[in-house]
């Protein structure tokens, strides 16, 4: 044991032993005192095992539906590899899974095959969706404003401060909701889907949309007013004013009831 060993050396070597046990444990083990009941390696092993399991548990909370979809064993395997590839660099555990969807894309098993399988796309979309829910849940915003009613004019309607629109190749929202309702859903076939997640009074609401509704809300988000969103819809799809007005009246009633708008 070197007498020149500094605090810095010890910490770097211990972190190495936690993050890369097979490669770095042999150096660090010489710093550890055995005890009456445990060898130095057994003492270190407690930290190594806890590091892996602690982050596994946190990822399982953040990606509960994905864990169900992949199965416990495959999920753990992916998480172990993910933590190795993207060790946490944030003091906040809420950021732990921020690169997980990207990691699944980078490491998809069919990456080099000429024909790609469907299921990795589903898992990647689901991972991205679950992490987005976490992000929306904690976003800084005041949810206390007055909710719009049907008596309010279109000019008064504003989308809630926290919401996100999603367009997926798979029915992600449906799968997620069925998982949450303990319906044990099967892996779905590809099917284009659109949805919106809103945060209303600090709680998240998940709603399916059809493609027209998705496009309209996307334009509303961009343009800022109902009138401008309608004009943009007409420009894009060439639909009749009367047809659009009739659709808007239906959407308006439903979305106001669901709490999409503030005034």
């Amino acid at each position: 044991m070197s007498e020149d060993l500094t605090l810095n050396d010890i910490q770097h070597d211990m972190q190495g032993a936690l993050l890369n046990p097979s490669e770095c444990s042999d150096v660090f083990i010489h710093y550890v005192k055995p005890s009456a009941r445990l060898s130095a390696r057994a003492h270190l092993g407690i930290y190594q095992e806890s590091y892996r399991m602690r982050l596994q548990q946190c990822m399982a909370v953040q990606f509960a539906a994905l864990k169900y979809a992949l199965g416990d064993e495959l999920f753990q395997l992916f998480v172990d590899q993910y933590i190795q590839a993207y060790p946490s660099d944030s003091y906040s555990l809420n950021h732990l899974g921020q690169h997980f969807a990207c990691f699944l894309e980078e490491t998809r098993p069919d990456a080099k095959r000429p024909v790609r399988e469907n299921w990795p796309d589903f898992m990647i979309e689901l991972a991205d969706f679950e992490f987005s829910l976490n992000r929306l849940f904690d976003l800084e915003a005041d949810d206390e404003g007055d909710v719009a009613t049907e008596a309010d004019f279109d000019e008064q309607l504003k989308l809630l401060p926290v919401f996100a629109l999603f367009q997926h190749q798979f029915p992600i929202m449906d799968y997620y909701q069925r998982y949450n309702n303990d319906e044990r859903p099967e892996l779905p076939f590809p099917k284009q889907s659109c949805s919106i997640v809103i945060r209303h009074r600090y709680r998240l609401g998940l709603f399916d949309l059809n493609f027209s509704q998705y496009r309209f809300l996307e334009l509303l988000k961009k343009e800022g007013s109902i009138d401008q969103a309608k004009q943009a819809m007409q420009g894009l799809f060439g639909c009749e004013q009367s047809e659009l007005d009739a659709m808007w009246l239906q959407w308006r009633k439903k979305w106001i009831a669901l709490g999409f708008f503030r005034k």
Binding site: R37, I46, Y47, E49, S50, M53, R54, Q57, C58, A60, V61, Q62, A64, L93, N94, L96, E130, L133, N134, F137, D138, N180, H200, R203, L204, G205, L206
Partner: peptide, 26 residues
């Protein structure tokens, strides 16, 4: 020394720190 724990246990558990979104949906 006679006690055996059936499932693995984690030192300093912190998964409760992560928001459980499932219970916070409308």
């Amino acid at each position: 020394s006679g006690v055996s724990v059936e499932s693995p246990v984690v030192a300093n558990p912190i998964d409760f720190v992560v928001s459980d979104i499932k219970s916070e949906l409308v």
